[in-house]
Amino acid sequence: MSTNRSSRRNRIILIVIIVLCVTMITMYARESDSGPIHKVQDVFMDVISPISSGFSKVFKPIKDGFVNVFRLPTLARDNAELEKKVDQLRRENIEAVELEKELEELKKLLNWGEEHPEMETVGTDIIAQSPDNWQRLMVIKKGSSSNVQKYMAVVSASGMVGRIISVGTFSSVVQLITDSRSGVGARVQRSRETGIIEGMNSDVLRLVPMNEEADLKVGDIIETSGLGGTVPAGIAIGKISKIKKRTEGLSELVEVEPFVEFSKLSDVLVIITPEPESVILKGTQ
């Protein structure tokens, strides 16, 4: 008797939970970015950010221990320094090639007065990452109080990291370029072929060229094209690691290895100006 009553109670509780979840899912899907659940999410992130940041610091030795489990501490330190130097040299090299290309274009146009627009950035820590396996997101410690807005580009010393997709007062969510929902306008530095860099929820990216006969080679450096208006042009993304020829009728699969090592990322820069076009348009409405 009491077992029957208990199992009926269990079923009722499960039904209540399911109804509650379905209601929340529906409400969230129907409301705008300024809706009540979105606001609750923003407030929650603002509250959890400092706690998560502290937690992250407390558990840093465990994180580092796991990453360096097979390395001696000195080797890990040396390696980090070397990687930093390689990143710097690579960045300088990319910048030099980029300047050379720009110079050529400027020469052709006989427009020596054109100046490269300076980007204003704001530096921040990463305080949390996506809790599930199906999204590549991270939370940063800067929000609307630091002039961060939706769709702004996020970069590191190595290159493009992602874009802001949600903004709280003191924290924001960044969608990484490796997220399968991410698409960023890109171009090949050598041949200037354009395309879209898409995430695949893995450590590599996919380049979808605009032109089926695009001039692409393994090792080509990919950078942002600026097309689409959300990310400034000329930010390094990665290099082509594999080109798989497909059968007739299908475009080739171009894999790009990003320069940014997302698992080791701790500090990033948000590009405040130039503002994404979508933000400017929103402001004028």
Binding site: R9, N10, I13, L14, I17, I18, L20, C21, V22, M24, I25, Y28, I37, H38, V40, Q41, F44, M45, I48, A128, S130, P131, D132, Q135, L137, V139, I165, S166, V173, R181
Partner: peptide
């Protein structure tokens, strides 16, 4: 029931950090 309640609360916490899928983890 205790497990479902724990899963619901834990999932809800995760959903708070996941723009796009609110409520799915809890469910």
């Amino acid at each position: 029931t205790a497990g479902a309640a724990t899963g619901f609360i834990g999932g809800l916490f995760q959903d708070m950090m996941s723009p796009g899928y609110f409520g799915v983890s809890a469910l």
